[in-house]
C-alpha cells in the first residue's frame, strides 16, 4: 500500500484519453463520496474505501433519476465495495457499476488515477 501525501490529486477519465481533475485525494473521507461535474454536463460520484482504493461511477441514480449516488454510503459484500443509493437504497458495485439488487440495471464507471 502506498502512503498518501496531501498533494496527490485524483483524476478521472470521462472518455478514453481525457482526464479531469476531481480533488485532492485527502479530501475524500473513507467510506463516503463526492460529486464531480464533467465537461459535458454529466456528473460522477467518486469514492474512497477503507483501504485507500478509489472508484468513480455515474452520479445519477437510475431508479429515481436524481444525481445523488455520491451521497450514498459505501459498504462491502464478499470483498467488493458498493454504494447504496441514499434514496431507495439499491446497491451498485463500485468496480463494475452493476446494480446488486436488479440484474437489468447498471451505471457507468470511470477510470480513476492519482497523480
Amino acid at each position: 500500500m502506498t502512503t498518501m501525501t496531501t498533494t496527490t490529486t485524483l483524476e478521472l477519465s470521462p472518455s478514453p484519453g481525457s482526464w479531469v481533475a476531481v480533488c485532492e485525494e485527502a479530501r475524500l473521507i473513507p467510506g463516503r463520496g463526492v460529486a464531480a461535474l464533467l465537461p459535458d454536463g454529466r456528473q460522477a460520484a467518486v469514492f474512497r474505501d477503507r483501504s485507500g482504493r478509489t472508484y468513480a461511477i455515474d452520479n445519477r441514480d437510475p431508479f429515481t433519476g436524481a444525481q445523488v449516488l455520491s451521497r450514498g454510503l459505501v459498504g462491502s459484500a464478499g470483498g467488493r465495495a458498493f454504494v447504496a443509493s441514499p434514496l431507495l437504497k439499491q446497491r451498485f458495485d463500485l468496480e463494475t457499476g452493476r446494480c446488486l439488487d436488479d440484474d437489468e440495471v447498471a451505471v457507468a464507471v470511470y477510470p480513476v488515477r492519482s497523480i
Binding site: G31, D49, R50, G72, L73, V74, G75, S76, A77, G79, A81, A84, K89, R91
Partner: peptide, 8 residues
C-alpha cells in the same frame, strides 16, 4: 471490510 448501509 467496509461494513454496509445497514450497520454503518
Amino acid at each position: 471490510g467496509e461494513g454496509c448501509e445497514v450497520c454503518k
